[in-house]
């Protein structure tokens, strides 16, 4: 009887092992084809948004776009970013793989508060757009002295 339980135990541990190994393969697969990998037709670029107190900071992932390809609009607390990247197939070459394709997007944000549109800065570096959006005076945090 005990030997039989031992057999079961061994069988289950083998299954556990198989399961954990398979799990690892699926993880790798997810990494290869997973979320956030690429921005292809119809998808929106990925963004990060931070609040430093005095201003907001927005980062946008835009590989292969130059500043001429971008349009940014701000009004009050509404921000709109649009852009396109054309597929740049060189002439006379045979295409083996074309995963990058064309990009065309329009993403808009409602900012948590109004910003001073004239003082907004936008920098594009290494395919990463970084925008610094100073909050409007009324929205800035204020220290209150206790009288």
């Amino acid at each position: 009887m005990w030997t039989r339980i031992n057999d079961f135990d061994r069988m289950f541990s083998a299954m556990d092992l198989l399961h954990s190994r398979l799990g690892r393969y699926f993880e790798d697969y997810d990494r290869l084809h997973g979320r956030g990998r690429a921005l292809s037709g119809g998808e929106l670029p990925l963004t990060n948004f931070y609040d430093t107190g005095d201003h907001f900071e927005l980062q946008v992932e835009l590989p292969g776009l130059s500043k001429e390809d971008l349009a940014i609009k701000i009004q009050g607390n509404y921000l709109e970013i649009s852009g396109t990247r054309k597929a740049e197939v060189p002439e006379g070459y045979e295409v083996h793989r074309g995963e990058r394709g064309e990009i065309s997007f329009n993403r808009s944000f409602t900012l948590p508060s109004d910003v001073e549109a004239e003082k907004v800065e936008a920098k594009l570096r290494n395919g990463l757009l970084t925008m610094t959006l100073p909050k409007a005076e009324a929205a800035k945090p204020r220290r209150i002295e206790v009288g």
Partner: peptide, 14 residues
Amino acid sequence: RLVTNGAVNWEEFG
């Protein structure tokens, strides 16, 4: 390696 500062409102890439 991203350089960020401030509190995170949302983060879609890292």
